[in-house]
């Protein structure tokens, strides 16, 4: 089977500002692949291009074998995208089950299977008991799990998670990690953008650190720590990006 994500010299600029600069990614089926970088490094812009929301300014990207521009519709059928932060305002008056059923229909789950599939994914993320409560009553962690459940409705080949544990407390983060691991055990490929090095260390098979839109270093967490002699991924990150030093200088 070919690569799930393959990019060549992928670039995106906004006016004069180059947000992503010649990025080359190669992600195999079944991997949890981490995209790491400081705030503003280009993670979300990269993800938005891979999720077919933003056309690249240069280079090319193929997801599940399809070009993100030329065959965007085919890509959308095969990916689940869990965004960094979506305010629940647009559906806060719906229950978790209603939101999930509506999104199941939008993902073209056959009409007769919508209820059953919504129940399955809610069960998968541990929200069955709270499925009939309004989303406005959910905690931040429950809302993130609901977003994850909705991203799984159409059994995507690739799950794109943009900062899935941002703002969550420790038990909620661990719970989310368990869900991500179990999805990977079932053969799903996961692209995980995160700011948390411990999260990447625990979950990712391989990762790329980017800064200023460019690849800085790639490898498995163990390889990166070994190559730099750093005790943790935090230290690898700081050594390669010099981010802490830059912030101090600023």
């Amino acid at each position: 089977m070919g690569l799930i994500i393959e990019t060549e010299r992928l670039s995106r600029s906004f006016g004069d500002r180059l947000a992503v600069d010649g990025l080359a990614l190669a992600i195999a089926p079944g991997e949890i692949f981490g995209l790491l970088g400081p705030n503003g490094a280009g993670k979300t812009t990269t993800i938005r291009m891979l999720a077919t929301l933003l056309p690249p300014s240069g280079g090319a990207a193929r997801v599940c074998g399809f070009d993100v521009v030329g065959a965007a519709g085919e890509v959308r059928k095969r990916i689940g995208y869990v965004m960094q932060q979506v305010s629940p305002m647009g559906y806060y008056m719906l229950t978790g089950r209603e939101k999930t059923e509506i999104e199941a229909a939008l993902y073209h789950v056959p009409r007769r299977q919508v209820k059953a599939r919504a129940g399955e994914v809610l069960d998968l993320v541990g929200l069955s008991e709270d499925a009939d409560r309004l989303v406005q009553e959910y905690s931040g962690g429950m809302q993130k799990r609901l977003d994850l459940a909705c991203g799984l409705l159409h059994r995507p080949e690739l799950l794109i998670l943009d900062e899935p544990t941002l703002g969550l407390d420790v038990p909620s983060r661990h719970r989310m990690w368990d869900h991500i691991r179990s999805l990977c055990d079932q053969g799903m490929t996961v692209l995980l953008a995160t700011n948390y090095m411990d999260e990447a260390d625990r979950l990712c098979d391989r990762l790329t650190i980017i800064d200023h839109g460019r690849e800085v270093v790639s490898g498995t967490p163990a390889e990166l720590k070994e190559a730099t002699g750093a005790p943790s991924l935090d230290d690898v990150f700081l050594r390669h990006t010099g981010h802490a030093l830059r912030e101090e200088a600023e």
């Binding site: 938005r48 999720a51 077919t52 929301l53 519709g73 959308r76 059928k77 990916i79 995208y81 965004m83 932060q85 979506v86 305010s87 305002m89 647009g90 559906y91 999104e103 939008l106 993902y107 073209h108």
Partner: peptide, 18 residues
């Protein structure tokens, strides 16, 4: 709703669907 979906980011979520 379109206005608020645009501002809250939910429009992007909808547009990432097929």
């Amino acid at each position: 709703p379109l206005l608020f979906d645009k501002e809250t980011g939910y429009l992007d979520k909808l547009l990432s669907m097929p």
